[in-house]
Nucleic acid binder design. Structure first.
Lengths: 287, 287
DNA sequence: TCATGTGTCTGACTATAGTCAGACAACCTC
DNA sequence: GAGGTTGTCTGACTATAGTCAGACACATGA
């Protein structure tokens, strides 16, 4: 706040410009015989379908309201809602062929409008705009990732860890076998649009000593500072639990991670465990 | 469209991110006992007040609807609506002291939310975001400027020309006296948010020869390509009127303008009029 | 001064968006 | 298999947003 007093102002000014001009992109959904909220819903269901709860959180709707919207789309033959095979309480919505055609037309309209919007710009200006919006997009998304403590043995933790293990398996020359992973003392998942985009656990490994484990950041999200933020967060978790020192191990393959640890003030130490995949070991004192 | 197919995609992706995250900035207006549209209206009236028609075009509201919104704000003692001294049909809205206090609180909330939004970012990221949004803002605004042919002797033309004359007066060492300006054959005003941001006229000065006159771009808008776009537009106007050549004169003081003319394919020629303020003369053949 | 246009207002509507409480079935844990 | 939790659904609402037609006063230009 102290040294960048203008960010908020720029943001607010942009907000104004935005609602007046680009906001019309949403209204391009109109005129196909559907109210805006229903059209947005069709859009959000998409070709792959989506869980009802997922839709609710992505669109920020009341469950009753969403249910009713789905009912009207169903009655128009645009959507079918069926049970989730994995959990009988959940339901998944997907588009019928006619719903798919509607989605295509929505996409088309939205695309046309976007093109028309940038048409008066020169080629170079368009490129500049695309770059600026891309940057803003990444940063805004990064800023609004939410870091939540989840049950280390629960479903959300498992789903996030799966990404982590899958990536290790891809990156390690001989693959990676997680064995029977034991849940850490606490686990944090970073979520954006309902999907896990980063995660990490904290576990006590000695008196006053915590280990950061299974830290992972989605490849698409690297370079947005999410890793550092998560690491700071996990250090906070460890400090709150009364630990004085944080350790972690890693593998030489994971060069971005190593660079980040060093930037964050970690120093290399001797091997402190028998993890066969670990080659490098770091430590940092909590203040 | 051919070489930058991705702009529309980036724009649409950003739109999605935006409505979900920054869109909440608007909702910060809520919770002060006013519905969103009324709060936006208070915001748009601002400390300086605003004409009713102006508000209508800025907010894109139906005149009946706006009138009703003003009535409810009036009945709550937040706004007064009085006659415009210059034109008895028009009315101007301004905030009462209590309306002004409400506005301050709205600003405060919006500001707080903007700060909270960028809080998770590092200083550097915030600076990057501010820069990206600033660029996007300028370009989007530039893209959505509308170029309208107006009555060369009418009010809109006069208002725009006033800016032009004022600027010349500021920039010329000995000031500038427009004398009795005669309206050109056609006049174009570029408008953004209801304000003139650029203008220019076209006038026949010989058989098949047109002159571009009184071309002006708001200083805040320079660097956004608005000048070139306007110039191209005026050339189009001249070509449509059957002219084959466009000429223009300028003063050595106006260096940005000169650079722009050269970029646009104009070449220096001999003096072709007796304008005492003109020092440089340019010409371009229309294709 | 008359015809025409412009800017605002009222009345009478409709459609859309959203809220809240509670029912109910499937699931999970002990 | 009892008790609590989660996910979805229905019913009964209210608030907000927006539309359209027409009235009326003022302005403008022939």
């Amino acid at each position: 706040m102290s040294t960048t007093p203008e960010v908020a102002g720029v943001l607010r000014r942009f907000n104004r410009t935005y609602t007046q001009r680009i906001g019309a992109l949403d209204e391009s959904f109109l005129g196909l015989g559907l109210p805006l909220s229903s059209a947005r819903l069709v859009f959000e269901i998409g070709v792959d379908g989506a869980g009802v709860g997922d839709l609710r959180s992505r669109l920020g709707l009341d469950s009753g309201y969403l249910s009713r919207l789905l009912r009207t789309l169903e009655s128009r033959g645009l959507v079918t809602v069926g049970p989730d095979p994995a959990d009988g309480r959940r339901r998944t919505a997907s588009l019928t062929p006619s719903g798919g055609r509607l989605l295509e037309r929505l996409e088309q309209r939205s695309d046309d409008l976007a093109h028309r919007l940038v048409a008066p710009l020169t080629e170079r200006q368009r490129a500049r705009l695309a770059e600026a919006l891309g940057t803003a997009d990444l940063l805004v998304r990064a800023a609004t990732v939410s870091l939540d403590a989840v049950d280390p043995a629960g479903r959300r933790a498992a789903a996030a860890m799966e990404h982590y293990f899958a990536e290790l398996d891809r990156r390690f020359p001989g693959g990676f076998d997680p064995g029977e992973p034991t849940p850490p003392d606490s686990f944090t998942v970073a979520t954006s649009d309902g999907r896990p985009v980063a995660c990490g656990g904290v576990q006590q490994i000695g008196a006053g000593v915590a280990e950061v484990k299974r830290m992972w950041v989605d490849p698409e999200w690297r370079g947005a500072g999410l890793g550092s933020r998560l690491l700071r967060h996990l250090e906070g978790v460890a400090a709150d639990a009364g630990h004085l020192v944080v350790r972690l191990d890693t593998n030489g393959t994971l060069s971005e991670a190593i660079a980040m640890y060093e930037r964050a003030g970690y120093t290399a130490i001797e091997r402190y465990n028998d993890n066969p995949y670990a080659e490098l070991f770091f430590e940092k004192a909590l203040d």
